[in-house]
Computed example of a mutant assay.
Amino acid sequence: MRVADSQFNIMLNLAMMKNNGEINKVVEQMSSGNVINHLSDDPSKMVKLEGLDKIISANQQYQSNIDSVHSKYEEYETYMTTLNDISLEVNDLLLQGKNGTLDVESSKGIVTELELLREQALDIVNKKSDGTYLFSGTAVDKPSLTYDEATGEYTFSGNNNHRETKVNETELVQSNFTAEEMIGDASFFTSLDAAIEELKNPTNNFDVTMTTALDTGETFRTNVNASISVLGSNYSSLERLQQNNSDVELFATKVQTDVNALDYAEASMRLNMSLSTMQAMQTTYMTVNNNPSLFDLM
């Protein structure tokens, strides 16, 4: 069977193009370090790699979410611990005030300290972070606890709802604490106000009022400590979830590497073979085109 020069040239050009494509592919692989760079390289493996990419990306987002919640928890822990300390100071001052043997100046000093501690406690309950109220539930634009000077009453202005943050494929965690769950009710402030008034102007109800303030202070402290315990438990859960996410990401990354990591030694061999083949084809092409006929080569 005779093969015309033009047909041979076409076949040779096609072979050279194919070989050049292989060279470009190997060069790209060696540049990226990946076996698969395009869907056409291996559609089934590319789909698998894309799935692994989504798993890794999702877990990185979950880790970021956990870091954010952890940061918020640190704020809550600081304020809760301070509230507990304040309640202990209030307790000590109320016990001193209840003693009844204080002189006028000592009583005034206790009153001044109690008023300062009350304002500090109120300030913490109504703390803001990034422009929103920390302890107001989901009503972050409202203060947690408000005081009506006309009635002398304290009222929760926020709500008792929790905000939740996604920390893995199936789990959400509580990312906030509310004033109501932390202190129970506003009786600590109400009874403290009454005790301060009794210290300023004692009445026949002095002992009862002071005892009530001490009791509500104890309840207040118990509630705050309960929230601190919940916070500690949540910390532990976050650490567990963070480790789980890290393990998932590590496994997905390993599988991704196993599927797509380039064997540079093997790739180098393929590149050298393709370059040698290309050189041979080019030599053949030049030889054919510098001779008048294929028959001269036979």
Rank of each mutant, 00 (worst) to 15 (best):
L172G: 00
P292A: 11
Q242T: 03
K72Y: 14
N289T: 02
Q174C: 05
S44Q: 13
S274D: 11
I23S: 01
T253V: 06
I56Y: 05
N161V: 14
T78D: 08
I196P: 05
A179Q: 07
V140H: 07
F188C: 10
N260E: 04
P202G: 08
Q60L: 06
Y235C: 01
N205R: 01
L122P: 00
A226G: 03
S191M: 05
L12V: 15
G21I: 09
Q29P: 04
G158Q: 04
H38G: 00
M11R: 14
Y76D: 06
L39Y: 14
L12M: 11
V259L: 13
L93D: 08
V90C: 00
K25A: 06
M273E: 15
M182G: 01
I10D: 13
T222Y: 15
Q63K: 14
L241T: 15
D263I: 03
V69P: 00
E164I: 01
M80C: 05
R2M: 06
D130V: 15
K254E: 07
L95K: 14
F220S: 07
M46P: 01
L199A: 03
D67C: 03
N160Q: 14
L199N: 02
L93N: 08
L192N: 09
L94M: 12
N59C: 08
T81W: 10
Q29E: 11
M80I: 12
S106L: 09
P202E: 07
D85N: 11
A121Y: 05
D193P: 01
N99C: 07
L214M: 10
V140M: 12
V125N: 07
N13L: 08
N24T: 08
S68L: 14
D207N: 14
Y76V: 12
L12A: 07
R2I: 01
T146D: 11
A280C: 11
V35W: 07
I183A: 12
Q63N: 14
E28A: 12
A267I: 06
I124V: 12
D207R: 04
E249P: 08
Q60N: 15
E28I: 10
V255T: 06
A150H: 10
S236E: 14
I36W: 15
V35T: 07
F220Y: 15
M273I: 06
I86G: 02
N91P: 00
S129M: 09
Y285F: 11
G184H: 10
T178K: 01
Y79F: 06
V230D: 09
D41E: 10
A267N: 02
L39D: 02
M11S: 15
T112D: 09
S64P: 02
A179H: 04
A261N: 13
Y264K: 08
M286W: 04
Q63P: 06
E74H: 04
R118C: 07
D41A: 07
D215T: 15
I55C: 02
K108A: 06
E50P: 00
M298Q: 13
T277C: 02
E89M: 05
N244K: 10
E119V: 05
L114R: 02
T190P: 01
N234A: 08
D263T: 04
S31R: 08
I55Q: 03
Q282A: 06
A139V: 01
D53N: 15
